[in-house]
Amino acid sequence: MSQIPAVLITGASTGIGATYADRFARRGHDLVLVARDAARMEALAVRLREETGVVIDILPADLTEAADLAKVEGRLRNDARIGILVNNAGTAIGGTFVDQSVADMTKLVTLNATALLRLAKAIAPRLAEIGEGAIVNIGSVVGTAPEFGLTVYGATKAFVLFLSQGLAQELGPKGVYVQAVLPATTRTEIWDHVGADIAAMSNVMEVGDLVDAALIGFDRREPVTIPPLHDAGQWDAFDGARMAMLGNIVNAQPTERYRTPA
């Protein structure tokens, strides 16, 4: 890997992905931009090449299509310049679980979870072998809160969080940093996918603020970064409660309260 690794960013044509591209380019990283909209990526690349001088490759791909996903996996496996993966591509769908179509839910899971998993798998062995690099997975606070009612979307983001934490356990000792970033409501085009009017929402974070905060967490090597959470102690307490249960949930016998039928 070069001293300054290249960064592959999915969902890079707009929003969070495009802003990560801007920020990493200004840090001197070459980029590989992945998204469906080649024209938007090319316009972004032209601007960033002029402003920063970095090398930028465009890799158009629909990560819900097997052939396109395989193409990006191959790039991650074989391009030794790439030392950072930003797994940002994702979407949402409107409606309730009962109303959503199986086709829409399946496509959502494919993009938000399966593609993210496969891209992490494509790069992780190479990074572990050389003992450096990073994987950044963009999740959501919704993945911790079924009360928000975004059942399938939230389930995919809970997967992203758990996967990131598990990978951090496995890859951290090998020198590979894994970060889960959990945004809340952010001003991106994802709201168009669910038919929501973001102008009518409150407490909306701007994309630049989100990514800048996430990169501070990246530089600090935080395993989980939640830019909108003002009281970091709440996450520490949440995670601490989970850790406290670990010694009590592996037992040969059911607990007393389950030994007497209701």
Results as ranks from 00 to 15, higher is better:
116 L>M: 14
149 G>Q: 05
14 T>R: 15
34 V>F: 11
102 V>N: 07
252 A>M: 10
262 A>G: 13
51 E>C: 07
196 A>E: 12
99 D>G: 15
191 W>A: 01
239 D>T: 14
125 P>M: 11
3 Q>E: 15
120 A>I: 02
76 L>P: 00
71 K>L: 14
239 D>Y: 14
117 L>C: 10
174 K>C: 07
82 I>Y: 04
7 V>G: 04
8 L>R: 05
192 D>Y: 03
4 I>Q: 10
32 V>H: 06
183 P>H: 04
120 A>R: 00
192 D>T: 08
250 V>A: 14
118 R>S: 01
203 N>R: 13
65 E>I: 13
261 P>D: 12
163 L>C: 09
191 W>V: 01
105 M>F: 04
162 F>V: 13
247 G>M: 08
43 A>N: 08
112 N>Y: 01
160 V>W: 02
129 E>T: 11
238 F>H: 13
169 Q>Y: 12
190 I>D: 01
148 F>D: 07
155 A>V: 09
242 R>Q: 14
208 G>H: 05
241 A>K: 15
111 L>C: 06
30 D>M: 08
240 G>F: 11
55 V>M: 11
164 S>C: 03
121 K>Q: 15
260 T>F: 07
125 P>H: 10
203 N>A: 12
231 D>I: 06
47 R>D: 15
125 P>Q: 10
128 A>S: 12
158 A>L: 02
158 A>G: 11
153 Y>E: 04
250 V>G: 05
95 G>P: 01
251 N>R: 14
51 E>V: 04
14 T>D: 14
172 G>Y: 07
69 L>F: 08
59 L>W: 03
119 L>R: 04
59 L>A: 14
128 A>E: 12
18 A>K: 06
129 E>D: 14
26 R>D: 09
119 L>S: 06
105 M>E: 15
257 R>S: 13
21 A>S: 10
132 E>M: 12
227 P>K: 06
132 E>S: 15
128 A>C: 08
238 F>T: 13
163 L>N: 05
151 T>K: 00
11 G>P: 00
159 F>C: 06
195 G>E: 06
217 G>T: 05
55 V>P: 00
186 T>V: 13
76 L>E: 02
208 G>W: 06
40 R>T: 01
2 S>C: 10
82 I>S: 04
165 Q>V: 09
125 P>V: 10
209 D>R: 10
125 P>A: 11
139 G>C: 07
109 V>F: 08
150 L>N: 05
251 N>Y: 10
209 D>H: 08
145 A>C: 08
4 I>G: 00
256 E>W: 11
252 A>T: 12
241 A>Q: 15
19 T>I: 01
53 G>V: 09
85 L>Y: 03
75 R>N: 02
194 V>Y: 00
11 G>T: 01
257 R>H: 14
127 L>Q: 01
60 P>R: 06
80 A>K: 13
177 Y>H: 15
105 M>G: 12
176 V>H: 09
66 A>L: 09
192 D>M: 07
84 I>T: 02
54 V>G: 02
244 A>W: 08
174 K>G: 06
45 A>P: 02
90 G>A: 11
107 K>A: 14
154 G>Y: 00
17 G>Q: 03
89 A>P: 05
226 I>T: 08
